[in-house]
Amino acid sequence: MELFRYVLDNAGLLGQLTLEHISLVGVAVGIATLTGVPIGIAITKNERLARSVLYLASIIVTIPSIALFGVMIPLLSIFGYGIGYVPAVIAVLLYSQLPIIRNTYTAINNVNPALREAARGIGMSQNQRLRMVEIPLAVPVIMAGVRTAVVLNIGVMAIAAYIGAGGLGTLISRGISQSDPRQLIVGAVAVSLLAIIVDYALLALQKRLTPRGMERDVAAA
């Protein structure tokens, strides 16, 4: 009851923090998609390069976020961005690379070789093949990677409150430092709910982006 009252009383703040959170993750994963997808496609041309890139991306994910922020503070301070928005976005950008690059790479590589041969035999150039066949077929799996990145990083972004990036993590950190369970619980629940809701929203988007003729395959997968 007390929690409920708290939520009502602070609805404005809560809404603002949620929007902040979404925009932070959205911008970061958006940029990550713009970089990760081309990288994922590019490395399908070279297996050795692919292995190194994927290895590097996996290592990045194993770095605890607190440590990553710690490393970035002195580095980015040089440019005057030691704390706040910029390092938070960069961290999420880095964490997002693995699911996005890996899913893109796998999806393009797994395009049925018969389709690739048909496309070649018909006389499509490499770019036409990518644009007309391979990318449309890979979209569902790429989108699954983006979803993973978003959900993962909604959690990571909560911690970015400690370097002053804002977002729902602010409630959690305040709850801890002020020993206020209400803020702590509301913050934590809001982060979880946000992750679940966004995941569903992206799933709906993924279905819309899936070429119609492939819906059956996707449902089966």
Binding site: L115, G121, V133, P211
Partner: peptide
């Protein structure tokens, strides 16, 4: 290739 018709056993229609 565009001047040669090509049919493969696996058919290879583009599902998208």
């Amino acid at each position: 290739r565009r001047s040669i018709g090509y049919v493969i056993q696996q058919i290879g229609l583009f599902p998208n």
